[in-house]
Simulated assay, not measured.
Amino acid sequence: MQRFHHAMADEHQRRRELTRDLQSAVGTGQFELFYQPIISLWRSELSGFEALIRWRHPQRGLVSPVQFIPLAEESRLILPLGEWILRRACGQAVEWKFEQRGLSMSVNVSALQFEQRDFVQSVQMALERSGLPGHCLTLELTESMVLRDIGLAGRHIRQLKESGVRFALDDFGAGYSSLSVLQSLPLDHLKMDRSFLQACRRPDSKRPRLVLETLVSMAQRLGLTVIAEGVETAEQGELLRHFGCDSAQGYFFGRPQPADEASSWMFTAAGS
């Protein structure tokens, strides 16, 4: 029991230290964005990137988002961090000439950020300051987030869609999935959780494959494009093409990369 209490105390101290470091990191440029490619399965070419936050701690090195994002949410530091992510991602999309290339930048939105009264204005400001057209930005929301206040979610989505911004429902199928969300909100994309593809690798994969195929067909009939997450093999990519899935991302196509590496990858892919 004593060892258990010591472990709890150590974990509490570690979280306090990391939260303290997080507060200083927001203002000292320790964060950067990595970019993971999203591939159109129909055209076999790049359709955009998802921007993913990374923290380069001066002593700890690269800290996983799994460790610091919950702390940022608890401390509300996710609000200034979320604004920085949005501004930086929009600026990068302009630098990479996304409008001319027909590409889109996807950005994850936290629940706390999304529920702010000035959320719509903050997104519009990021677009205006960067010069990025709204249709080149996709905001990724989770089901649990929009279900907290589906009326608010609908208002924010509809207001921003007037500026051309697109919306994706992220990690669909990771937990409790409500089809009512797909019916009631004017979404553009459905991002299927990686668990669907993982289930298809099992020996008894007939039922998971049927679920995957049905989900793709249903979403497309609702006017949504379907993006599969967690593609790790060529076989999985071919399975998705066979089922008519629109786009995909995962280590098979490309890992999250720093901006300079993603830029080189993008131009190499465009030339191939």
Rank of each mutant, 00 (worst) to 15 (best):
F172Q: 07
S272R: 14
R88L: 00
E128D: 13
S205V: 00
E115I: 01
S264T: 10
R87S: 01
H12T: 15
Q257W: 08
A153M: 08
S24R: 14
L79R: 01
Q220R: 14
S24V: 03
M1V: 06
S163C: 10
L33W: 09
Q236K: 02
K161C: 00
V146Q: 10
S205W: 02
W265Y: 12
S122P: 01
A262L: 05
A7M: 14
E232P: 02
F98I: 04
L187F: 01
S75E: 08
Q198G: 11
F68C: 08
L147H: 02
Q36Y: 11
V94G: 01
A111L: 12
R56S: 11
S178P: 09
G27P: 05
Q36A: 11
V26H: 07
W96C: 03
H189P: 00
R3P: 00
A93T: 03
R158N: 07
R209S: 06
S110M: 09
R148F: 01
E95P: 00
R155W: 01
A234L: 13
L41R: 10
A199K: 13
E128G: 04
L190V: 02
R14P: 01
R101Q: 15
R101N: 11
G82I: 03
F267I: 04
I38E: 13
S122M: 12
T233C: 04
R207T: 05
S47K: 12
D10R: 15
L22P: 10
K161F: 00
F119Q: 10
L46T: 03
Q116L: 13
Y251I: 05
K97Q: 14
K161P: 00
D170F: 09
L127P: 06
P65N: 08
F196S: 07
F119W: 14
G102C: 09
Q36N: 11
S47L: 08
A248W: 09
L197A: 06
P186S: 09
Q100A: 15
R87N: 09
V109M: 13
R87T: 00
A89L: 08
G48Y: 08
K206W: 02
A174E: 14
F68L: 09
D118T: 06
S177P: 12
A168W: 09
G154P: 05
K206E: 13
Q159S: 14
S205N: 15
A9E: 15
S106Q: 11
E232G: 03
P258D: 04
D118P: 02
Q116F: 05
E99A: 15
L127K: 04
A219N: 07
R54T: 02
Q159H: 12
H189E: 14
D149L: 12
I85C: 08
P37W: 13
